[in-house]
Nucleic acid binder design. Structure first.
Length: 563
RNA sequence: GUCCCAGUAGCUCAGCUGGAUAGAGCAACAGCCUUCUAAGCUGUGGGUCGGGAGUUCGAAUCUCUCCUGGGACGCCA
């Protein structure tokens, strides 16, 4: 089944005395061009061992090597041994595989049903759901779906930012300038304005910061007034967030945020003391993890907690409750140091499970090359962007396919798909310059392009009344179909790499390539022509449709059957 | 100042642990809808892979150094 292994075995018979199978496997590569075959073995390294030119070695290997029936041709070209596979056989194998497994194609059990917690999205209460949170949300969601596909049990945790000094600030701002009715009418907007105003005023009146600290201390101590304000702000914010999650169709297993760990941090202090890790420094308590990293601040000089404290409590709690083997934190790049410290403190505390902890950082969303700052009110609201995307998709439908049924549903799926894909297609760690026009683009390498390709495939299958048949004979595939077969073949590997690298963009790029080769095929081959090869073509189209739909699903994007 | 990330076509980016002629999309221009959805397909132009040195049979990819941009660097998260 694995073509590479066949090649390794053949090569091993000839080269076994100098190179073992593992090394051979690593050396084999995929040729750059289709004209160079399907598998390639470079002979340059062998030149040293055999003291002969790579060209000679390649020629000799190509002649002597065992050729299993699946190898249609073996040739030597400028130091490479290139293998051409039997196209019909390979095509038949893959298509049958997909016909049998359907959307299960590409499933693996590398996770062995182990638990993986994924901490993502995590917006801050009393602040709007910004474009920045979108990144964490869609990346985390895709990783959870990929984890599931790979046999893990994901636990989706929305670690809401609902605690900390910011609430002291907010309470002060509200008590000084706020009005209850205004907040009730438009909670997020009003609370944000209060937050922004606090920072403006605090520049000339530093005393405000002290007041804020005092109010947070009250809050942490259980003060009734502080608590009821906090709860009110929190409830209003969660309502707003729910709207966004509904638009994105993303859900969580837990909304336990920072506040949830308030009654668990004393235990953390206690354990740290028992292990003699806590040190006093300028009135605050710190853990010196090692000499390379700055000390990790655990308790402020006024006795209140910090996010590191709460993150320690959260990690310990999650291990107890979920017994994860892996635990991901999908949090921005700028917090890399924090997580390094966090993980090392947990290691110093003697928890062996610290090895499963992993920070999955991502680049920032920039505006004019600079970080967007909530404090200055420079912020773009996700909800508005999503609404705009949906509206634009609707306009496109009215223009291009006015007879479509369920226009609103499709417009929703396409608009949201465009925004999600735009975020997912690029490597996580790159900063993104915010561009609404790019985000709302529906042509070229976009989510709608993939959805459109899927809709075309679905449409043909419907028109031809195609029913998948596991036992269908697949024969004589068109020459133009070969590039499709190659991509279908590499779907399972792509899933694996995307998950293991915490990199959904690999899947996104794969889907683009698959869609491209399919659209090319679609343009030159009349699929529904009534000849003897029609069943083969339809099975191919079906395979593409299944993989596109499943791939999109794993990215958190819907694939409408028509658009 | 110290540490981390990045620098590839006008713009946005691919390029897996080094390999055969550096690829897409957008933008520009030129074509393709009496036949399966033109949100598509085909073609043209566009590059000293930030600069320099090194390792290697072979470097956009690895090492060093410099330049540029961004971020982090104890009582924010």
């Amino acid at each position: 089944m694995d073509y590479k292994t066949l090649f390794v075995n053949s090569l091993h018979q000839q080269l076994g005395e100098h190179v073992n199978k593992e090394e051979l496997e690593k050396m084999i590569e995929k040729p750059k061009r289709e004209s160079m075959g399907d598998l390639a073995f470079p002979c340059f390294e062998l030149a040293k061992i055999y003291r002969r030119s790579p060209k000679d070695i390649a020629h000799e290997l190509a002649q002597k090597i065992d050729t299993p029936p699946l190898f249609a041709e073996v040739e030597a070209v400028s130091g490479y041994v290139n293998v051409f596979l039997d196209k019909n056989q390979v095509a038949s194998d893959v298509i049958h595989d997909i016909l049998v497994k359907k959307e299960q194609y590409g499933n693996t059990n590398i996770g062995q049903n182990q638990v993986i917690t994924i901490d993502f999205s995590s917006p801050n209460i009393a602040k709007p759901f910004s474009m920045g949170h979108l990144r964490s949300t869609v990346i985390g969601n895709a990783l959870a779906l990929l984890a599931e596909k790979c046999g893990y049990q994901p636990v989706r945790i929305n670690h809401i930012g609902d605690w900390g000094t910011q609430f002291g600030k907010l309470i002060v701002a509200y008590k000084t300038w706020g009005a209850a009715d205004k907040v009730s009418q438009n909670p997020i907007k009003e609370l944000l304005e209060l937050y922004v105003r606090f920072h403006q005023e605090a520049e000339s009146a530093p005393e405000l910061n002290n007041q804020a600290k005092q109010w947070f201390k009250k809050l942490e101590g259980g003060d009734q007034e502080a608590l009821s304000l906090w709860k009110w702000f929190r409830d209003e914010s969660l309502k707003e967030f729910a709207k966004v999650y509904q638009l994105l169709d993303i859900s969580f297993d837990s909304y336990d945020g920072e506040a949830f760990y308030n009654d668990k941090i004393d235990n953390v202090y206690k354990t740290l003391e028992e292990k003699q890790l806590l040190e006093e420094s300028d009135g605050a308590m710190v853990v010196k993890v090692n000499n390379d990293l700055p000390p990790c601040l655990i308790k402020k000089n006024d006795g209140t907690s910090l996010y590191a404290t709460r993150d320690l409590a959260a990690a310990i709690y999650r291990q107890e409750r979920y017994q994860f083997t892996k635990s991901l934190y999908v949090v921005g790049n700028e917090q890399t140091l924090h997580f390094k410290q966090l993980f090392m403190v947990l290691e110093a505390m003697g928890y062996t499970w610290h090895q499963g902890l992993q920070h999955v950082p991502f680049g920032m969303l920039l505006q004019d090359g600079k970080k967007m700052s909530t404090r200055k009110g420079k912020i773009i609201l996700l909800e508005q962007v999503l609404e705009q995307a949906i509206e634009l998709a609707k306009n496109n439908i009215l223009k291009k396919n006015p007879s479509l049924v369920e226009k609103d549903k499709v417009a929703h799926e396409v608009g949201i798909g465009a925004v999600i894909f735009h975020d997912l297609k690029n490597f996580r760690l790159h900063d993104i310059e915010f561009s609404l026009t790019d985000m709302l683009r529906f042509e070229g390498e976009t989510g709608p392009y993939l959805q459109y390709t899927h809709a075309r495939a679905s449409s043909i299958l419907k028109k031809c009344h195609y029913q998948p048949d596991e036992n269908a004979a697949i024969h004589e595939i068109d020459a133009q179909a070969w590039s499709i077969i190659i991509y279908l073949l590499s779907f399972p590997d792509t899933i694996k790499y995307a998950f293991e690298g915490n990199d959904p963009s690999q899947l996104a790029k794969y889907l683009l390539e698959l869609a491209k080769v399919f659209n090319k095929y679609y343009a030159v081959v009349r699929i529904s022509d009534e000849d003897q090869k029609r069943p083969t073509r339809l099975a191919l189209v079906y395979s593409v449709q299944v993989v596109l739909k499943e791939g999109l699903r794993l990215l958190g994007i819907k694939a409408p059957a028509a658009m």
